[in-house]
Design a protein around this nucleic acid. Structure first.
Length: 587
RNA sequence: GGAACGGUAGUGUAAUGGAAGCACAUCGGUUUAUCAGACCGAAAGCAGAGGUUCAAGUCCUCUCCGUUCCUCCA
């Protein structure tokens, strides 16, 4: 139907007769003359209706409304010097229309895709097809496509095979809750949608496909967040005959490739690495935003000997007093704002938030009087603080100081604009502990999953100090988000048995839960390792968004509902009967 | 399982417990150079239920919906 798109005509196309199709972004009726901004995903072009080309067509043009779909044929005409619109890529020209066809009318839309004001998200999701007409979402979808293609190209060049794995699998009650699918044929039995293709990709390694990748949909029935959807897309990778370094190097290469293709940047390699322990101590987080400093410092000795009761008792009870220093923050954080910050850290379990403004002579704070001159100077030295800075401290159990200060650090970093929001900072976090002591249940839990290979030299700790054992696992952190996660898998049955023993998983239980995987690993499994990258998050971060819904065409609300289709919804009794299901909802 | 914030014409956004206003969109009209068109006019609204009060969009309780966070997400 069309000869060109609405984004491509320029001065060089002068005098050509062209046909454009698209949506009416705006109509300007000047009585004798009508202008239409015609929009498609490529851009916008002004088309003009002149009364010289017939009153009938002019009246038709006057009847056009926002989001009507039209086909317009006419001549490309340069605009007069004063009539050029510099805001449009096509602003040098316009189309003087000789033939107008209304392809379809639109109901009055609830909101205008071309408007600068953005409707409430609930409305946008209800009419997602209109929301997706907005240039911002169009760009997001286009970027997402390009990114996925680059990823596939990269792995293809490196000899990876794209192999699909099933959506209907078996529920393995570990980790997140499964989405279940009832079987019609097998009465009372259920499939589960995959939380990840983990088990299948390991089997593909056993099968000899030593380089596998897939852009895979994953499902987890857990609470949603700004960066978390119940179904999401993962770039799933597994390699055989490799060590951890090989995986890290392969993904380093992907980062460099994507940065080069997307941004024209030669990203230096290898990507920086940090140990879990370092990250916990310096940033209180296993996914620190490394675009800025503001590291956590420990006030241990000073807190123990100062006269401030809260600090003293915290130390006596085995807790910690830690803090961060906001450079130049003293004038920006008034008492009122600090009260807000206090409420903020309380949501992370902190009891309160101590603060010290740094001045020429020492510390200015309601609790400064509890600190001797030397201790005040010691604090200033610890934070390398200068007059005008403000120091915030939290006294609590180690875990709480970490959570509260890490969240506060992220907030302050953003508020104080300590980084360029367009910057992408990639790093690896390594040396995770293999096991976590679960204080409540008095037992060891797997930090990652029970198939994660321990660092070889740490294996003797199984008998002495399991908490010391490091895992051969790795997370990629981008701008404070966990953007990828993976591990070397256990292929040695002896090591696997040690892990199961420590986790208290009995042989029968292991066989019942993952017997099919364990069995596969017994038939000549090569050493293998893999990683999974969160595609939605990568796209979100590249686009500088802070909400994953903005890079997913049809996302779900926080209650995992689809506003567009009304899913989830009740089904016919007939369907339930076929599936041997009786619904029993409490009143 | 919990916390915070929010829901006002189609959309966005106002309104000390005392007359629900503005902008865009919509409908009718005028306008030959606009591009956030201009101008004249019209129509259109307090999420639902209950309560407090002389009086409730505003205060209270519950329900529904949305957002953010905690728990959760091996």
């Amino acid at each position: 139907m069309r000869t060109h798109t609405s984004g491509e005509l320029r001065l060089e196309n002068k005098d050509q007769v062209v046909t454009l199709c698209g949506w009416v972004n705006a109509q300007r009726d000047h009585g004798g003359l009508v202008f239409i901004d015609l929009r498609d995903r490529y851009g916008m072009t002004q088309v003009v209706f002149d009364p010289d080309n017939g009153a009938e067509m002019l009246n038709l043009a006057r009847s056009l409304r926002n989001e009507d779909v039209i086909e317009a044929t006419g001549k490309v005409v340069p605009r007069g010097e004063k009539l050029v619109n510099p805001k449009l890529a096509t602003g040098q020209i316009e189309i003087v229309v000789s033939k107008l066809t209304v392809l379809n009318r639109s109901k009055t839309p609830p909101f205008l895709p071309g408007s600068t004001e953005i409707a409430n998200e609930e409305i946008r999701l209800k009419h997602r097809y209109l929301d997706l007409r907005r240039p911002q979402l169009q760009e997001a979808m286009i970027f997402r496509h390009k990114f996925s293609k680059l990823v596939r190209d990269y792995f293809d060049k490196n000899g990876f095979l794209d192999i699909e794995t099933p959506m209907l699998g078996r529920s393995t009650p570990e980790g997140a809750r499964d989405y279940l699918v009832p079987s019609r044929v097998h009465e009372g039995a259920f499939y589960a949608l995959p939380q990840s293709p983990q088990i299948y990709k390991q089997m593909l390694m056993v099968a000899g496909f030593d380089r596998y990748m897939q852009i895979a949909r994953c499902f987890r029935d857990e609470d949603l967040r700004a960066d978390r959807q119940p179904e999401f897309t993962q770039i799933d990778v597994e390699m055989a005959f490799v060590k951890m370094e090989d995986i890290l190097g392969m993904i380093d290469g992907l980062v460099a490739y994507v940065m080069k293709e997307m941004r024209g940047i030669d990203h230096p390699l290898p990507l920086p690495r940090m140990s879990y322990r370092d990250a916990a101590e310096r940033f209180g987080s296993d996914k620190p935003d490394l675009r800025f400093g503001m590291e956590l410092k420990c006030l241990g000795e000073v807190a123990a000997r100062c006269g401030f009761g809260v600090f003293q008792t915290t130390i006596q009870n085995g807790g910690r007093v830690r803090g961060i220093c906001a450079v130049g923050g003293a004038p920006k954080y008034s008492r009122k704002v600090i009260d807000e910050l206090t409420e903020f850290v309380k949501t992370y379990g902190a009891q309160g938030l101590a603060f010290f403004r740094v001045n020429e002579t020492g510390l200015d704070s309601p609790i400064a009087k509890f600190f001797s001159e030397e201790d005040q100077q010691a604090i200033i030295a610890k934070f390398e603080a200068k007059p005008g800075d403000i120091i915030f401290c939290v006294a609590d159990k180690q875990k709480v100081t970490s959570a509260a200060l890490a969240a506060l650090r992220n907030r302050l970093g953003k508020e104080l604009q300590l980084y360029d929001p367009k910057q992408m900072h990639f790093s690896w976090l390594l040396d995770f502990p293999l096991f976590n002591w679960n204080e409540e249940d008095k037992r060891w839990d797997a930090e990652h999953h029970p198939f994660c290979d321990p660092v070889t030299e740490d294996v003797p700790f199984f008998e002495t100090d399991p908490g010391q054992i490091r895992a051969q696992s790795y997370d990629m952190i981008i701008n404070g988000y966990e953007a990828a996660s993976g591990s070397v898998r256990i292929h040695d049955p002896v090591v696997q048995q040690k892990v199961f023993d420590l986790l208290g998983i009995k042989e029968e239980e292991a066989e019942a839960r993952f017997g099919f995987l364990l069995d596969a690993l017994r038939y000549g499994a090569p050493p293998h390792a893999g990683v999974a990258l969160g595609l939605d998050r990568w796209v979100m971060l590249f686009l500088g968004n802070d909400n994953i819904r903005d890079v997913i065409a049809f996302p779900k609300t926080q209650k995992a509902a689809d506003m567009l289709t009304g899913a989830p919804a009740p089904v016919d009794d007939r369907q339930l009967r076929d599936l041997h299901i009786k619904v029993n909802t409490p009143k």
